[in-house]
Design a protein around this nucleic acid. Structure first.
Lengths: 233, 233
DNA sequence: TGCCGCAATCTGTGATCACAGTTAGCTTCC
DNA sequence: GGAAGCTAACTGTGATCACAGATTGCGGCA
């Protein structure tokens, strides 16, 4: 079951699109998956050399990510993964609750047998992962992401999905940093319970309940992270 | 009163930030203000020559806008202002209703005397403009935008504001195209009425009513545009 | 008169170079 | 031994060049 979770495939390997596009996807994937920590620095030249390209495609990819707030680039200084202040994190959480909750509510009406099967599979995968004695954190993060996006994709709104992806681009580094430092949180099962409630609500076409479940999931994780006081302010 | 509406100032003239940033703001302002129509083509070289720069800053600005969906760039083909299908427009409208409605509801709780005064001023300016015998359409679009963003800014969420700005970047060209072809819509007063209701709701701290007013404004304009069948599909 | 095809022009993409401001490490002096 | 200052390496920014694919319009043929 677990090996169904798609392995990390490097966007640089698939040869569709321009080099800029591939670098963009490469970096975006790593950001969402939490492979960068807030404050990490990266240099255009270092990335381009690591990828065996000139600096140009990396520049374009980075400037796109900077436009979305996923990276910060100050003139003549190294590109950094943004630090987030507690107030900012609270703000983004409130927005996520509203928007991702809305997507979950939409999913109730727009769900198809196929997308429902996908959601069920992702829910089961995440649940089984969290029941393992020694959880693989990176895999758990990926499974959690897979569940959420299965729901959001089922909502059938490309616009909403794009907005949510941008939000995850921003919170990816924070979530992962948190999970890496507090692996026991997985044990508590708040996420598993919220996922289960969300799945049930979608099955039974109860939009308000689906919205509530996603909101609880996001708020719960956010409260935990804020309680650890690892954020500035 | 009317001359309070800030004149169109070119972002290229203020000398803060990198050239890329300035080009980005220049193009973004023109897109939101509806100075481009869907399907318009622009060439990196033409823009850079018009602005007296090399192609590089324009490239970066355009690739950022493309990342946000405000422009479309296909390899080896001219950059275009995206055409929008009716289905896509419906989708984006549904998302705007939810998100901008949420911002209006937030504004009820977060509004300050200063921001309320700003909203009132913008409401009055738009109302007076729409009562003129010969309305200046460009000014009406700008005044409408000013009112909406005064409300959204009053919500006090930087995250939400950024998301809404990106949405307007997308719909700017459509709205303007519509208003240019159907100037009589301003006469009908649907927008004026919605603005008035929104302002009243914010004054009286009625979040649900504020959300409703903004939703009615957006839905009304959207329904009108869709009824004109100028969109693909 | 109408249509097909070729060629000149224009498109974005990517590489390379020059530059100025930042950073970090080493040396030197106290 | 520690701190201050200088230098060398590194940062993103911007300009210019080369290239391959797309577009457009002109000319020739039917």
């Amino acid at each position: 079951m677990l090996e169904r979770i798609p392995a990390y495939t490097d966007a640089m390997l698939d040869e569709t699109g321009t080099l800029s596009d591939r670098v963009y996807r490469h970096l975006a994937d790593r950001l969402i998956a939490g492979r960068f920590a807030p404050g990490d620095k990266l240099s255009l030249r270092a990335v381009s050399e690591a990828l065996g390209l000139s600096i140009m495609p990396v520049r374009e990819a980075v400037s796109r990510l900077a436009a979305e707030g996923a990276l910060e680039v100050a003139p003549k200084k190294a590109v950094t993964v943004p630090l987030m202040r507690a107030g900012q994190f609270r703000d983004i959480t409130q927005v996520r609750v509203e928007i991702e909750g809305f997507a979950a509510a939409l999913a109730c009406q727009a769900v198809t047998p196929e997308s429902l099967a996908g959601i069920e599979a992702r829910e089961r995968e995440f649940r089984e992962l969290s029941e393992l004695p020694k959880a693989d954190l990176a895999q758990a993060v990926a499974a959690n992401q897979a569940f959420h996006f299965a729901v959001y994709r089922a909502a059938g709104s490309a616009e909403l999905l794009a907005i949510i992806e941008r939000l995850w681009l921003r919170v990816g580094p924070i979530i992962n940093l948190d999970l890496r430092e507090n692996p026991e949180r997985l044990r508590l099962g708040g996420a598993v319970q919220a996922h289960r409630a969300c799945l049930a609500a979608i099955r039974e076409n109860r939009p308000a309940a689906a919205r509530e479940a996603i909101a609880a999931d996001i708020s719960g994780a956010s409260a935990f992270i804020l309680s650890r006081q690892r954020l500035l302010d």
